[in-house]
Design a protein around this nucleic acid. Structure first.
Lengths: 392, 392
DNA sequence: GCGGCAGGCGCAAGCGCTTGCGGTCCTTTT
DNA sequence: AAAAGGACCGCAAGCGCTTGCGCCTGCCGC
């Protein structure tokens, strides 16, 4: 029953294969009556068209590929979830390619692995080299990106620079002036742009606040818990302590919390910590952070790609920015505030709702510097109040 | 250059398309010299065969599908990582299908979504109903499963019953007799077997130790942090407190730790907690747990499936058990031991290496009850010593 | 030196679908 | 009422590859 061919359906319905084909895909040209008969026959035979054959005949593969540098880290898994949903609902297949290690990536785009195989490609967090861009364009299918962008392709990503600035500005507004940075991968095996941008945002915020840069305050954490831990230890080992730390990812912030706790520093009484991403565990740690809706980004970029592949003329390139918001929780506090009760990082209270939150000012506001900062200040305060968790 | 056809290659090489086809896939029947010429021509044209065409001609799709109930939870993402690697290295494509909600699952297997589309299917953690099994068999392709098993298909999974028993036995051996259980999904939307089995293991271990069952000690946690938190609160709210808790997943154990800390109970001085899975965060929380190598399970099952699809005669059904091991960390202690220093759940020390660990006795040792228990006891002690973390 | 054998190679027939083109037949339009 | 126009439908030619089957060499054995 699974192997019925279009001809059998045609015979059963008493029509030609052409009509079967046409009715089943409801392109026009078939009367309602015939369509109905065909439908019934197909149903009866459990018929579904062979993808291989129709691909060959139409030249369209009905398949999209998503290419990611990692599958297991939260960000990527979450994104994949959003993408998969949209793609499935569009009736397309999704191929997953993981460029885990540098060797796999090496030559991946020029190898014909994607050629004639997909109608569209989704690139995640991959900053492309020139030859890679060329190879992709040679594929002659729509390409969308998330997390990074290049001129030629549609993309969606957060504004890492602005968002990182928002995070640091939050600390500045709390009175901090000695702010450490824990950044991601120092050597960029995958050409990540994220650490670069978030660092730029950090420096920009400091500069805007008139705080001189101090390179000793910038350490590397490798985007992992352990890395954040070690980076923090390094930060604590040198001269004057920072009063606040901005970690470029929540995972590294977790590591920082652990390191701080180990040496007996209390958060946020002695030192404030802010992360980035709003990892599911961040709420657990009551970590102040920059939140982004990763799944939604996945959905959006997938929709964009789906739309692009289904329109014969090339779709217009659209480079979107996804919003971020500052989520103030319990790991940041006003500098020098009297210590509250004994610090406890892990859930001595819960954050019930979302509280008042804030769309980061990352669209169409470039270069409006000082006023933005002032406004930001006010916003932070409001959020903080709105966010104040209830005791459970 | 990307759209070269086999005929063009043939012309350039001065041979027939047949010879091109044969040389490029090195089936025999072509002289070395010709093969060489063809290779060169193909190279020059950047030729790669159209998958659609060869699929149609051969009837093989070169594609595998992995069907999972979730993509974003750590376990599934990790598994997918292992599977993807093997499948890619085998030169096959991987389709990912997420049966996130019950509606999506409803009728998924009977809908022709997989029909004529894949050479093999990988089912993750899905307990199948009879009609679903039938629909899968009707696909007439190899099917492998991980996390659950049925008679007809190859599979790999841990022995949830034995492993849960090991966890609880560990607590028993530490002197605990009042042991709470936080179990997974009570209503089984996806027909999970995991919570059922782990609970069976829990009960079996208690029974083996002569401890009477107490249904009040069994609460539901939904496999989430929050669920574990709430379940623990529930557990604490009723009569005599347990002295130890077995959570069926690490996430729920994290929630339990939070709940305990909130009410001021110290772990492990006042109460011991053991989890299950060895989630990456478990080390961070210094959580004693049952460890399984999820990625490796993914690799193995993928290898099995790859082997099955590439052999024309049906591959033999093999139902494997993956090993688990008890990893003793800092959240479990001897009942009534004098309190150690002030408890601190979040990383006041690190666990540097793996320490001495233990293959759970889940292969070929069924029914060897008491001796196993005795041995287990000894082993536990040794592990505990070997595992003792160093201060950093 | 001749029959036979086998390795190399090309022919052509598909694989199962889609689609341009034309043929019917039934409505409209004039 | 005749002609023009549609609406429907089938024919057949592909889509680009694989593969069974013959043919043609060259080479071996007797």
């Amino acid at each position: 029953m699974a192997k019925a061919t279009i001809e059998e359906v045609a015979n059963l319905a008493g029509v030609s294969p052409s009509s079967v084909s046409r009715s089943l895909r409801d392109v026009g040209g078939v009367s309602a009556k015939t369509t109905e008969r065909v439908r019934a026959a197909a149903e009866q035979l459990g018929y579904s068209a062979s993808p291989a054959a129709s691909r060959l005949a139409t030249g369209r593969t009905g398949t999209l590929a998503i290419v990611m540098p990692n599958l297991t880290r939260w960000f990527f898994a979450e994104l994949l979830g959003g993408v998969e949903q949209v793609v499935r609902e569009a009736g397309l297949d999704l191929l997953v390619h993981n460029l885990g290690d540098t060797e796999t990536r090496q030559g991946y785009f020029s190898s014909g692995l994607l050629r004639k195989r997909v109608d569209g490609v989704l690139l995640v967090t991959l900053a492309l080299t020139e030859p890679e861009i060329d190879a992709l364009m040679a594929l002659d299918v729509p390409v969308c990106m998330v997390g990074t962008d290049v001129e030629s392709f549609s993309s969606i990503r957060i504004d890492d620079v602005q968002s990182a600035s928002t995070a640091v500005r939050h600390l500045v507004n709390l009175g901090h002036r000695r702010i450490g940075l824990i950044s991601g991968a120092p050597d960029e095996p995958m050409h990540y742009t994220v650490p670069v941008h978030r660092r730029l945002g950090y420096r920009a915020a400091l500069e805007a606040a008139g705080i001189p840069a101090d390179r000793d305050l910038e350490v590397h954490g490798d985007f992992t818990i352990r890395g954040g831990d070690e980076a923090t230890t390094q930060l604590l080992g040198q001269g004057e302590l920072p009063t606040a730390i901005f970690a470029e990812s929540d995972e590294m912030a977790f590591g920082a919390l652990r390191a701080l706790r180990r040496v007996g520093l209390q958060v946020p009484a002695d030192i404030s910590v802010i992360g980035f991403d709003d990892h599911p565990m961040a709420e657990y740690f009551d970590l102040t952070t920059i939140s982004q809706d990763v799944r939604e980004q996945g959905r959006q970029v997938a929709q964009q790609l789906v739309a692009a592949v289904s329109r014969p003329d090339g779709a217009p390139v659209r480079r979107l920015h996804a919003p971020t918001r500052l989520v103030v929780r319990g790991t940041t506090a006003v500098l020098g505030a009297e210590p509250r009760r004994a610090p406890s990082l892990a859930g001595n209270r819960t954050v019930p709702g979302q509280g008042a939150q804030h769309q980061s000012p990352d669209k169409g506001r470039r270069g409006s510097g000082p006023p933005a900062l002032a406004r930001q200040s006010a916003t932070d305060q409001k959020e903080r109040r709105g966010q104040r968790p209830l005791a459970t």
